[in-house]
Amino acid sequence: MARRVLRGSRAEEAVLLPPGTVAAIRAELPAVADDVVDQIIREVPAYEDAFGGPMGETIRGAVQVALGGFLSLISDRRGPSSAAPRSSAVAGAYQLGRGEVRSGRSTDALLSAYRIGARVSWQHLAAKAVEQGIEPATMASFAELVFAYIDELSAASVAGHQDEAATEGRVRQRMTERLARNLLAGAPEATLLAAAERAEWTPPTTLTAVIAPESQAGALQQALRKGTIQAADLPDLEGAALLLVPDAHDRRRPALVRAVRGRECHVGPPRPWQEVRSSYDRALRARALGLTGDTEIHLPRLVLSADPAALEDLRAQVLAPLDDLRPAAAAKLRETLRAWLLHQGRREEVAAALFVHPQTIRYRMTQVRELYGDRLEDPDTVLALTIALGVEEVSG
């Protein structure tokens, strides 16, 4: 006759089966383990190849150990010693969960395997218990304990899976951040390739630097292409983070630009992945100038502001003939000369751009020629004037 020992609440009940029944069920464990593994392979695609060869034998052994531990709990052994089988089984389940992360399987696959294992195990255990003449009331309690035990093991495996995933995620994040810093430092190719391998990151053809507000970088990273690297706490970026986006060039660039629209981001140009520092530098310069979005549409401003001191020297040199004029007169002649250069001397177009009469343009250009003389025919002077006056155009 089976005996029941109460340990407080119903959830803590333990059913003690007769030794003969326990022995009969224990003898069935190898067949149970085989059936569990076969059913998991059939029903969970993620395990189709995992149970082949030595791994299959390991899992079969683990199933037997887990169920054997359960049988030890419901045998005649009572007291503190009964905690040892459970503790050992739970520890094994926890390590199983960690191993599943390293094997690349999700908790969904893991829990599916447990559900199948519970179903198949109970079919075998129940059949053997009935064969041994266990009473229906005892069978109900036995079922409750079987499924509670397997639930405990599955919870331990999920905890192991989550802990390992978190650890692995932190390690990978550290590795990718180290890779990002090596890229920005212009490290040698061998160093970059080794860092990429450690981060389990496949080098793309190009990388594009995107500077994003720190509060939006995580969400943006998820929305961008797989393999996007995030680097935070860079000395040049106060309140912002850097994203390095793989293969966002040619036809894929518009999608990147759309993804950052309205986010106060700065998108550098695509560059060969080992040369992404130049993309980052351009995004930094655009950020310093307050030019958001795609830096490609700000190229004139970026070029003209590349060396502010040199630009000021050039302006002072090439616009010196206007220095003796009254400020208002000098401003009108600068405006007219800039429009003249941009419209290649077409008087009607210059007048339309400045909303004045063509005769006014003729009068002003006569003044400019008197001040500059033959230098207006010199290509180098024309180039210098175009650059010096062009900065006013792109700044306006």
Rank of each mutant, 00 (worst) to 15 (best):
Ser87Tyr: 03
Glu152Gly: 13
Leu207Met: 09
Asp35Leu: 09
Leu304Ala: 07
Lys128Arg: 11
His266Arg: 06
Ala231Leu: 06
Glu200Lys: 13
Asp163Arg: 05
Leu311Ile: 08
Gly68Gln: 00
Gly99Trp: 02
Tyr363Arg: 14
Gly227His: 04
Ala89Cys: 06
Pro213Val: 06
Arg102Val: 01
Ala14Tyr: 10
Pro19Cys: 15
Ser72Arg: 10
Leu256Arg: 01
Arg346Glu: 15
Glu275Tyr: 06
Thr205Ser: 13
Glu264Phe: 02
Gly56Ser: 13
Leu342Ser: 08
Glu189Asp: 08
Ala384Ile: 09
Pro80Gln: 02
Ile211Lys: 04
Ala84Asn: 02
Thr360Pro: 15
Val260Tyr: 01
Ala248Phe: 12
Ala388Trp: 02
Ala288Tyr: 08
Val257Asn: 07
Ala137His: 03
Ala14Asn: 01
Arg119Lys: 06
Ile41Lys: 06
Asp233Trp: 07
Arg105Glu: 01
Tyr372Trp: 10
Ala283Gly: 08
Asp38Ala: 15
Asp151Ile: 08
Glu200Arg: 13
Leu325His: 12
Tyr94Trp: 05
Arg3Val: 15
Thr205Arg: 12
Ser278Glu: 13
Ala33Asp: 14
Gln123Asn: 05
Ser279Leu: 04
Val101Phe: 01
Ala140Cys: 12
Leu184Glu: 14
Ile229Asp: 00
Pro54Thr: 14
Arg315Lys: 12
Leu153Gln: 10
Ala388Ser: 05
Ala316Asp: 12
Thr381Leu: 15
Met365Glu: 15
Glu335Cys: 11
Ser103Tyr: 03
Cys265Ser: 11
Leu125Ser: 02
Glu312Pro: 05
Gln162Val: 13
Leu29Met: 09
Arg287Asp: 03
Ala309His: 09
Glu28Met: 08
Arg4Glu: 06
Glu177Ser: 10
Gly52His: 11
Asp378Ser: 07
Ala310Val: 10
Gly290Cys: 09
Phe70Tyr: 02
Glu28Lys: 09
Arg172Ile: 10
Ala328Lys: 15
Ala212His: 11
Ile387Pro: 00
Ile116Gln: 00
Arg277His: 07
Ala212Ser: 08
Gly396Tyr: 07
Ser141Pro: 05
Ala248Thr: 01
Ala23Pro: 01
Arg271Asn: 04
Arg105Phe: 05
Ala118His: 04
Arg10Thr: 07
Leu16Val: 14
Thr138Ser: 09
Ile211Val: 15
Ala159Trp: 11
Ser305Met: 01
Glu312Asp: 07
Glu377Lys: 13
Ile41Gln: 14
Thr292Asp: 05
Leu319Phe: 11
Tyr114Gln: 00
Leu314Cys: 08
Leu304Tyr: 04
Gly56Asp: 10
Gln162Ser: 13
Val120Leu: 00
Ala127Arg: 05
Gln95Asp: 01
Leu322Trp: 11
Leu243Tyr: 12
Arg263Cys: 01
Asp35Ala: 11
Ala331Thr: 14
Gly92Leu: 03
Arg271Ile: 05
